[in-house]
């Protein structure tokens, strides 16, 4: 189990490799759970594997042994359909057994289709209806800020999710109340269920819109731990306004046939596809381990 302490940690090559390995394990969990469920959303889960890994293994003050620890940082998966990504990182972080991931969406499993805070250890907010999680994260942030604590709140949104009007109500609220303990992350993989976001309903220019709504915006390559680290450090040190990390990502990242394919938004791999995905990810993991 990796167990980094935020205060003393500086990203070095060895740690970066460990994070990369963990992101690979998170991806394996995404494949195991969606294959096990024969349902679910692998594409957007895979595109956020690095940021989920970074948050849960480096950035956030959390304790898997005590999921409800009062002074913990909070994470809200506003794009709740990417539950395979969240569940996989939680399992790999030690909140529950990785072996349970294939029970995802099963009738007798606690791994509900979309994140459920009442059944899954480590889930801070039940989500699934787009736009609502980001509002809930604003509620957490304003409450924690009023209490004067150091806790931070992170919310991960999809770029398609930006089409929900409620997102902009929430962003207005966050800036109005100067929620500098809130950091939203936009997984800009450019695809949504029906196609390319610019064909469906363009959310662009995202950066300018977020800025106009009063956010400090940091653009990163969402698959680079160096850039993620810089972004979250900047966000943590930004006072007086909320931060937004706008991540350019590849949907389906890490599984060759899923990468940048809109069809893999919400589809499970079949037996053959499962074997290929697993083999590719295990090979990637082995390569990282060999390079040590």
């Amino acid at each position: 189990m990796l167990n980094f302490v935020r205060e003393v940690f500086t990203i070095d090559i060895a740690t970066k490799r460990k994070l990369a390995e963990m992101a690979c394990r998170v991806r394996l969990g995404i494949i195991e759970s969606t294959y096990g469920a024969q349902a679910g959303h692998p594409g957007g889960s895979l595109s956020s594997a690095e940021v989920l890994t970074y948050l849960y293994f480096k950035e956030m003050n959390i304790d898997p042994e005590n999921p409800k620890m009062e002074n913990r940082d909070r994470f809200v998966l506003s794009k709740g359909h990417c539950s395979p990504g969240l569940y996989s990182v939680l399992a790999n972080r030690g909140y529950f057994p990785v072996e349970d991931l294939p029970t995802f969406r099963h009738i007798d499993s606690y791994l509900e289709g979309h994140p459920s805070m009442t059944t899954v250890p480590g889930v801070d907010m039940s989500t699934g209806s787009l736009g609502q999680g980001v509002s809930a994260s604003c509620g957490m942030a304003i409450g924690l800020k009023k209490r004067g604590g150091p806790e931070r709140v992170y919310a991960l949104l999809g770029d398609g999710e930006l089409q929900e009007g409620q997102v902009w109500e929430a962003l207005m609220f966050a800036a109005h109340h100067s929620l500098d303990n809130l950091c939203i992350i936009v997984d800009n993989n450019n695809l949504q269920i029906d196609g390319v976001v610019t064909d469906i309903m363009s959310p662009y220019p995202i950066k300018e819109k977020l800025k106009a709504f009063g956010f400090s915006v940091i653009e990163v390559d969402g698959h680079s731990f160096d850039e993620l680290e810089q972004a979250f450090n900047t966000a943590r040190n930004t006072k007086g306004k909320p931060s937004a990390v706008l991540m350019r990502t590849t949907k389906g990242k890490g599984v060759s046939y899923m990468e940048n394919q809109v069809g893999w938004h919400g589809k499970a791999p079949n037996d053959e596809e499962y074997k290929i995905a697993k083999q590719e990810l295990l090979e990637a993991l082995a390569a990282l381990e060999v390079s040590q």
């Binding site: 009062e70 909070r74 809200v76 805070m117 801070d124 907010m125 736009g131 609502q132 999680g133 509002s135 809930a136 994260s137 604003c138 509620g139 957490m140 942030a141 304003i142 409450g143 924690l144 009023k146 209490r147 009007g165 409620q166 109500e169 929430a170 207005m172 609220f173 109005h176 109340h177």
Partner: peptide, 26 residues
């Protein structure tokens, strides 16, 4: 005044902000 939050004309957001607040002890 410190415990009254005016959310502006945005009821959808308010309900979920309330949900979030309830998870941090309010």
């Amino acid at each position: 005044p410190d415990r009254h939050i005016n959310c502006g004309i945005a009821e959808a957001n308010m309900m979920c902000v309330a949900g979030g607040l309830s998870t941090v002890g309010y």
